[in-house]
């Protein structure tokens, strides 16, 4: 690499990681002021673990993330299969557009319009409506991850199984699904973290009693910088770090 390329890369990575490092370092700061270093302390973590509403919100978020990632995992995998295996079917372009549009749609639009639908059909707002909303925008992400794996898949195993008389269903569950399983798991994890992360859509479609972790954190962030949020953030970053490691291990193992 040229010195110029190396500098560019170094600056970009510093830019990406500096705020995260600052966040983590100051979560161990004894002082309440985020800009003054008052010595090492874990007291914000103690306060965090005694914060009942925050922990309740974290549990709501986990529940929503698990359920919505499960739905998005199934729907996204099916959509990826349809795009990879069904050839140039009629309306393929529109199908792809519909699948990928929720990924870039501004969250305020998705959130507001889903809320208006839920109110229109008289669905009670709560955890269920957040799950539906999250599954809707995460499906496209799962389809991208699984689709990439399907594209690189060697078809000869499936053809051999079919030649030996296996039914399409048996080929799918015996050969295809095990082969794409790591990418389905990676897609599930992506959908899971996207759900954990969402503030805007959940704020629109949630109802009384369904406060997610980002909603709770946002209501505190609005009041200003607070070391307890830094501690919560550090734990979330650590969790996501572990999930990313798991996901890259899953995909690297099968070369997805």
């Amino acid at each position: 690499m040229t010195p110029f390329a190396r500098t560019a890369l170094g600056l970009a990575l510093a830019f990406l990681y500096a705020p995260i490092l600052v966040l983590i370092v100051y979560s161990f700061n004894d002082s309440k002021l985020v800009t003054v270093w008052g010595g090492f302390s874990t007291r914000w973590y103690a306060i965090l673990f005694a914060d009942g509403p925050l922990i309740a919100a974290a549990l709501v978020s986990l529940k929503v993330a698990l359920l919505s990632a499960g739905i998005a995992g199934v729907l996204g995998t099916l959509a990826a299969l349809a795009l990879d295996r069904h050839g140039r079917f009629r309306g393929r372009g529109a199908y792809t557009g519909l699948l990928y549009a929720p990924m870039v749609m501004p969250e305020v639009i998705t959130g507001l319009s889903l809320l208006l639908l839920f109110v229109g059909i008289g669905l009670d707002r709560g955890i269920g409506t957040i799950v539906i909303a999250h599954a809707t925008f995460a499906t496209g992400f799962v389809a991208v991850v699984v689709g990439a794996r399907l594209k690189g898949l060697d078809r000869s195993l499936e053809e051999a199984a079919a030649d030996l008389g296996a039914s399409p269903a048996r080929v799918f569950f015996g050969i295809t699904l095990p082969l794409i399983a790591p990418s389905v798991a990676a897609g599930f994890l992506l959908a899971f973290t996207l759900s954990l992360d969402d503030l805007v859509i959940a704020s629109f479609v949630s109802g009384p009693g369904a406060t997610t972790l980002p909603m709770r954190l946002y209501s505190q962030v609005r009041l200003g910088v607070n070391p307890e949020i830094n501690a919560a953030s550090t734990l979330m970053i650590a969790t996501v770090g572990l999930v990313v490691l798991a996901a890259s291990w899953l995909t690297a193992r099968r070369g997805a």
Partner: peptide, 29 residues
């Protein structure tokens, strides 16, 4: 390097934006 660019994208958007408050505010870093 690709993983290094992706990892921040996996960490909470809200939290990463919040982190900038401490850096940018008048008495900030």
């Amino acid at each position: 390097l690709v993983a290094l660019v992706i990892v921040p994208f996996w960490t909470s958007f809200l939290i990463r934006v919040y982190a900038w408050i401490a850096i940018l505010k008048p008495e900030g870093l």
